[in-house]
Design a binder for these strands. Structure first.
Lengths: 204, 204
DNA sequence: AGTTAATCGGAGCGGTCACTCCGGATTGAA
DNA sequence: TTCAATCCGGAGTGACCGCTCCGATTAACT
């Protein structure tokens, strides 16, 4: 394994310049902040200003605005997946599952367009997001499985339904926004639906 | 009552011209179709072309694109409210409530940006939509009340939660789109949560 | 038919946005 | 230090969009 000196050299050439790496990180950070604050319609120039760089620099690292959005989404999804993985070792599987669900939704209420990321990752439109989307689905699926084995979540729901519910709840949170009280109660209804009582005896 | 000759004369002046009325209706119809098909970002020119009119005409009837969107939203919300009212005389209150809910969600899966209309009406951002939004909420509230009295829907949920759930479900349907099977199962979970088992005996 | 006032059509205006291009600054290796 | 490869900055380009303006058209009334 011919390890490169500093950063991962793109196969054959010299290593990536330090400033390029630093600026790329800055752009990503700025983009995340700006898109969270002003929505995905914010201009690339706003991102560049926030990062203290020129637009040209932004476009060199992310050749398209879509690519930039994708990168931001992937970063968020990755962090979410990591969080889900961390919860796999929790004692109470049910609490872990519902806790993760709640955390994602609460996050969506603040961070603009998180729900869009989730929706895309769920449906796998883009090529790049497919990878991290798969990772998130795997982690969420594992969390779900544990909760189902523990009997906290009914056994007749699958990952696709959960993902749909998660997307819906996140988007609702994003648009209803303000009232955390209402949000919590609505979420509680969904959770009650996810808990016990399979179809079973339709109790009159 | 000094009844005007043809169309409602705007108090004092001559009656509204017939072509103006016809074109207004055409614009609204075209706008609904175009926005449903291409989303709210579709240009005003597209709407004008679809209506077979010039952009100037569109802008005279709806002085702003926002106004046009509002008009489309109001029309949809009005129809929804009427539908809910019609269901008030149904035999089974529970079936009426859940049926209406399902219908709205299914509709959102097809008609683009319906969920946006619902979200706006729920939060009452615009002045104009406030009226029809209130009407929809009233109708939905009545439907909910009947279902609760009949014991089909748990008594400890309020209209705000229902509206949040409706918005969320609609937006999820719009973005997840394709798979009607998954959509139905996810909705079934929400419905189960809305049905019986109040807080009651919290099954250990 | 003739008159009047409202309506129509669509070229054009101002502004924004994603994206490009290239001279000059930086970096890392020799 | 020297030098080549690489990166940065930001003015500029082309396309699009919401909206306006005004001559041509048309409906309503006499």
């Amino acid at each position: 394994m011919t390890a490169p000196r500093r950063a991962s050299a793109p196969d054959g050439g010299r290593p990536v310049r330090a400033d390029a790496l630093r600026n790329r990180a800055r752009v990503l950070e700025a983009a995340e902040a700006v898109f969270a604050e002003h929505g995905t319609t914010a201009s690339t120039e706003q991102v560049a200003r926030r990062a203290g760089l020129g637009v040209g620099t932004v476009f060199r690292h992310f050749p398209t605005k879509e690519a930039l959005l994708e990168a931001v989404f992937v970063a968020r999804l990755g962090r979410l997946a990591a969080e889900a993985d961390a919860l796999m070792s929790a004692e109470d599987p049910g609490a872990a599952f519902f806790g993760f669900f709640t955390r994602v939704v609460d996050h969506a209420a603040t961070k603009n367009a998180l729900s869009a990321a989730l929706a895309e990752a769920g449906v796998d439109v883009r090529e790049t997001t497919a990878g991290t989307g798969r990772e998130l689905r795997r982690a969420l699926g594992a969390l779900l499985g544990r909760a189902q084995e523990a009997g906290t979540v009914r056994a007749d729901v699958g990952l696709p339904e959960i993902l749909t519910l998660l997307v819906g709840a996140s988007q609702a949170a994003e648009h209803v926004g303000g009232d955390a009280e209402v949000r919590a109660r609505a979420l509680a209804v969904v959770f009650d639906g996810l808990r016990a009582t399979p179809p079973a005896a339709g109790g009159h």
